[in-house]
Each structure stands twice: as C-alpha cells, then as structure tokens.
C-alpha cells in the first residue's frame, strides 16, 4: 500500500473525545439525581434519547451517513437536560432536542459546522416559547430519590435579583458548592462539575483559557458591580451560583462554537464574563450565562480570523524593516 505521510495516527478519535465528555458530565448527573430525584434522571434519559433519535431520523431522511455512534448527539442531549429544570414536563426535552439537533446542528451541516451551541440554542428557544414552564418554577432539591413531589423555589440568583436585602451566609456558599440549591438539573453542583472538568483538563480535551477567563471575569466584575452599587457584590457567590460553572467549563468550551487559538479563547471567556455580569445585574433575567455564550458564539468567526498565532520564523513587519 502506498500513501502520503504520516503513516501513523494517534488513537484519539471523535468517539473517544465525546465519550470522555460524557464521562466528565456523569458526576454532575449523579448529583442531579441525588438532589432532584428520579425525575431528573428521566429528563436526562429522555433528552439524550431524543437527541440521538432526531439525529438518526434526520440523517436517515436526508440520506446522510449515520453519525449517532460518534456520541456527539448524546453529549448535546446531556447538556440540554442539564439546562432544564427538573420540573419540566416530559415533552420539553423532546422539543428541545429537536431544536438542538435538527435546527441548530444538522441544518447547518452537522458536527463542527454549527455556529451556535445546540443545547444552549435549544434552551433559549424553550425559554422564549415556554417561559412560564422554564423560568417560573425552579425545583428545590428534594434529596429523596423516589419522591415525585417537586417543590418550587427561587434560585440563589433569583433571590439576589428580587430581594436586595438577601444576605449571603456561609451555609449558602457550601450549599451552592455542593449543589443543594434550586436550579437547572446539571448546573447546581459546582463540586461535581469541577470534578468532571478536571478529567477533561487531564485528558487535554479542553484547555484552561475559556473557563479561567470566564470565571475570573465574573469574579472580578461580580465583586465590583454589586446589585446595590459599586463594590457591594460578592464575586465568589456569583461564580458558585447559576449556570456559570456548567457554562464556563462545558458549554463555552464546545469545539464547534469556540475559537481555535488561545488568544481567541481568552477573549471569548472575557466577553462571556462581561455579558453574564451585565445581564445578571442590569438585565431582565436573573441569569445570563446561556445568552452570554450564545452571543459570544457569534463572535467566534471574527476571533478566529484575527487571533492567529505568529508563524514560526515570521517577524512582525516593523522589525523586518529595521533589520
């Protein structure tokens, strides 16, 4: 056999990467079931199943190669479920899966071609179309696996938004870190998300640039711009609550919708951070992670165009003229 070089390839494949991402999401899924009960599990399974199903159907109907075995639809499904409240009716993840996989991903050419994060685009669609179901009823952790009773409660960020008198206590921080707060299925447990992300860092599947820039920006701006004026914010609470960790670690780092180069990644992270704090503090919603990432997704082609590294041996024009 004759081929062009190189004659060997690494063992990494799309499948191995997607499987690692699924593995990294599993601690958060386990914590979700622990806090929100069996209903959370049902929604995760439904969402993953629907994403895989829609991808299969679309590819079947359009006579394209079937790509469900690359696990990317499963990742989208898991992330979509993580962005839904446990109290969602069971048709919500199915509608979301259709929007994510068919409209956001496949219609733009499939894996790697979509310009917006499919799970977040679906969440934005659901938020706009079914606002009361999506934003009205946050589920409080039940901590009873089989409990079917879901109790609505305000999210930590909702509390901050509504009541300027809300005082953050030490136990609030601990609860937010562990995930014992109201919120979407997969976003509440910072501990589990960090654990999963550590695995992805270790496997070099994601780099530190976007998460670090994003979280740091929210921390600094969250501290500076308090809801009751300058320097009244609590940056550490801002980064532990809402969808920030999920967004910074798993959504903003999506390959298709983030810049390729390090400088671009850092700018993307900072941009997401600024938008998140602006929406949280001055916008109509208590939470702004998903919209921030979606907006920054649109800047990715621009960032990719201008943030390219200096090619080896190429000297900047100025220097060359003097040399």
């Amino acid at each position: 056999m004759v081929t062009s070089t190189p004659h060997v390839r690494s063992g990494d494949t799309i499948e191995s990467i997607m499987r690692d991402v699924l593995l990294a999401l599993s601690p958060a899924a386990i914590m979700a079931v622990y806090f929100f009960g069996i209903r959370a599990l049902c929604i995760i399974i439904l969402s993953v199943g629907a994403c895989i199903g829609f991808e299969y159907l679309f590819e079947l109907l359009t006579h394209r190669p079937i790509t469900i075995t690359d696990c990317s639809a499963a990742v989208t499904g898991a992330l979509l479920a993580f962005n839904l409240p446990a109290s969602s009716p069971f048709w919500i993840p199915v509608v979301g899966a259709f929007f994510a996989v068919v409209i956001t991903k496949q219609l733009f050419g499939g894996l790697g071609q979509n310009f917006m994060n499919p799970a977040l685009a679906a969440r934005a669609f659901l938020m706009a179309a079914y606002t009361p179901l999506m934003a009205g009823s946050w589920t409080r952790p039940v901590r009873n696996l089989l409990s079917a009773d879901l109790i609505s409660s305000a999210t930590p960020l909702g509390l901050l938004k509504e009541g300027p008198s809300f005082i953050i206590q030490g136990s609030d921080l601990l609860n937010a870190f562990l995930g014992n707060v109201a919120g979407c299925i997969g976003e509440t447990s910072v501990l589990a998300l960090l654990l999963g992300a550590a695995y992805l860092f270790h496997k070099k599947i994601i780099t530190w640039h976007i998460p670090a820039a994003y979280i740091f920006t929210v921390f600094v701006l969250g501290t500076l711009l308090g809801r009751r004026g300058l320097f009244t914010g609590q940056g550490y609470y801002e980064i532990l609550t809402g969808g920030l960790m999920l967004g910074a670690l798993f959504m903003a780092t999506d390959y298709s919708t983030s810049p390729v180069n390090d400088t671009g990644k850092i700018i993307m992270g900072i941009g997401c951070g600024i938008l998140t704090v602006v929406i949280r503090n001055f916008g109509g919603y208590p939470e702004g992670v998903s919209y921030s990432i979606l907006i920054m997704n649109l800047f990715v082609p621009l960032l990719d165009k201008y943030c390219i590294p200096r090619v080896f041996g190429v000297v900047k024009k100025k220097k060359r003229e003097t040399a």
């Binding site: 894996l111 790697g112 390959y255 390729v260 180069n261 390219i308 590294p309 200096r310 090619v311 080896f312």
Partner: peptide, 30 residues
C-alpha cells in the same frame, strides 16, 4: 515493513474544530 494491521489508516471525517492541529503545529500554522 509494516503488516496490514500496522499500516491500517482510519478514514477521513469532518473537522470538529477541536484545534489540536493548531495546538501541536511546530510552525504555529493553522
């Protein structure tokens, strides 16, 4: 002199924009 197994190359698929090629390029190309 590679055996069939050693010489087997996987088939080409679509770019997922992971950026590894750029991360590892010693000439810092894209």
């Amino acid at each position: 002199c590679l055996t069939e197994e050693e010489a087997r190359l996987p088939s080409e698929r679509g770019c997922i924009r992971c950026g590894r090629c750029a991360d590892y390029c010693p000439a810092r190309l894209m």
